Amino acid sequence: MIRLYALCDQDLLDSRGLSLESFIEIAKNHNAEIIQYRNKTADISFIKAQLIKIRKMYSGFLIINDSYELIEFCDGVHLGQEDLKNIDSEVHRAVSIVRSVIGKDKILGISTHNEDEVLQANDLDLNYIGLGAYKNTSTKDVPNILGDSLDQIASKSKHFVGAIGGVNINDTFVNVTYHVIGSGLLEK
């Protein structure tokens, strides 16, 4: 059975003319266990309002991308490698800072893109990693495509692994816990 982590990207919704409510319904219809809300352009009050809306419609795990100051409105936070470096140039310190803000009872995940980052993540206080990109995707410029090596690299992680980047429901992995799907959920 595929375990689904749905990535709800506000820019993608806006570009396709989809409402937040529509995306949440699609995610629920596909039995998404986790929804991550990502919005790289809005102000913090808009993001907060969207998290509150999602929480009213969805009872699964809710993760915020980047905006860890909004942790009280969700179950966890996800950060990319560049976002970590913006917090502190040393990844271990950056994760420690975020963990001190969100607490031990909240979920913390980061993006990884290669075996070195996965091995580094093994020493971090995390709940999961996103690993990829698996395939090229139209929603993000991806310089590193892992393809068939993703599953082998995932086997090196001591954390749960979500396959990211161009993943769809029909992809199969042995060492991956979650399929992280955003735009693929919206395909007919």
Rank of each mutant, 00 (worst) to 15 (best):
N65M: 00
N31R: 11
V91F: 07
A27T: 15
D105N: 14
Q10Y: 05
I110S: 05
S96D: 04
V176N: 04
F46R: 06
T41Q: 01
L79N: 10
R99E: 02
K28S: 15
L119V: 14
F23Q: 08
L18D: 01
I145A: 08
C8Y: 01
N39D: 15
N136Y: 05
E82K: 06
Q81I: 05
M1K: 02
S89F: 11
Y178C: 14
N136M: 04
H179P: 14
T137V: 05
I34F: 09
Q50P: 01
G103Q: 08
N168C: 12
P143F: 06
K158V: 11
E72T: 15
V118N: 02
S67M: 03
S157P: 13
D171A: 11
V161A: 03
K140W: 08
Y128M: 05
T41Y: 00
R3P: 09
Y68S: 12
E187V: 12
S96Q: 08
R38G: 00
K188H: 12
A94V: 12
C74R: 06
L186T: 11
Y37C: 04
V101N: 05
V77P: 10
V118L: 02
T137Q: 07
G17H: 01
L185V: 14
A32D: 07
N39M: 00
I26M: 10
N122M: 06
V142L: 09
S89N: 14
E25Q: 12
K48I: 04
F160L: 13
K53C: 11
D88I: 09
D83G: 07
N144E: 12
E187N: 07
Q50N: 14
Y37E: 00
A49Y: 08
A163F: 03
F23E: 07
E21W: 00
